[in-house]
């Protein structure tokens, strides 16, 4: 099995130490970092995504693979930057103000990161202004917001309104999610999309970047 195939295979099995060692090996063998990323890591995660979609594996298996992906990405990221290889896209994510639930948001962040996007995780209890300032500072392409309480959902609208005030609306895509949130609510507040779970959030973000950005 070729080295990149081995990376893909071991990533699918969630073996983070092995994936890290193989990635290090690939870097030392001067395999271009873009190739390690696309033909090793992203190739592996794509198969993981397919298996997950087909219910052949379940979320904990995906999270193990994501951990392996993230570990390898830490090694690859400086090389990708050095070679001027653009990242797939940058996503600012957080649970809205007064909402301390962050498991769902964490899972979405991990899965988006696992798909090769850069994720700036603002944590939970994030004020509307912080989403906007972080998106501007980071030149983010997407803002992702999570709310698990009906009482905190209005913060999502505040972020959309602030994006309009700041001239970011239409330039930065806004995704919302969380148990009480719906497609209709996303439409009502002017968000670009609603995602019902982590896998769907990855698909939605990917749909914003049909070709590697």
């Amino acid at each position: 099995m070729e080295l990149l195939e081995q990376i893909s295979f071991n990533l699918q099995n969630g073996l983070d130490d092995v994936v890290a060692a193989l990635t290090k090996d690939a870097i030392e063998k001067r395999i271009p970092p873009g190739e390690i990323l696309s033909d090793g890591l992203i190739a592996g995660m794509s198969i993981v995504g397919e298996k997950f979609k087909n219910h052949d594996i379940f979320l904990p298996d995906v999270l193990l693979a994501a951990r392996a992906m993230n570990g390898a990405m830490e090694m690859l990221k400086p090389l990708l930057i050095k070679e001027g290889i653009p990242i797939r896209g940058k996503v600012v994510i957080g649970s809205v103000k007064d909402d301390l639930h962050d498991i769902g948001k964490n899972l979405v962040a991990i899965l988006i990161k696992g798909a090769g996007f850069e994720v700036i995780d603002l944590g939970n209890d994030v004020p509307a202004e912080k989403f906007i300032s972080a998106a501007k500072e980071e030149n983010a392409h997407v803002i992702g917001m999570s709310a698990l309480l009906t009482t905190t959902m209005p913060v999502m609208k505040k972020v959309v309104d602030l994006a309009k005030d700041e001239g970011l609306y239409g330039k930065i895509r806004i995704i919302v999610g969380g148990a009480p949130v719906s497609k209709e609510y996303a439409l009502e507040i002017g968000a670009d999309a609603y995602s019902y779970d982590g896998a769907n959030a990855v698909e939605t973000v990917e749909s914003f970047f049909p070709v590697n950005n």
């Binding site: 904990p60 999270l63 193990l64 994501a66 951990r67 964490n106």
Partner: peptide, 13 residues
């Protein structure tokens, strides 16, 4: 979750 052990964090949650 903070230590990167997402799968265990998710399962315990």
């Amino acid at each position: 979750f903070d230590s990167g052990d997402y799968a265990s964090g998710y399962m315990l949650d």
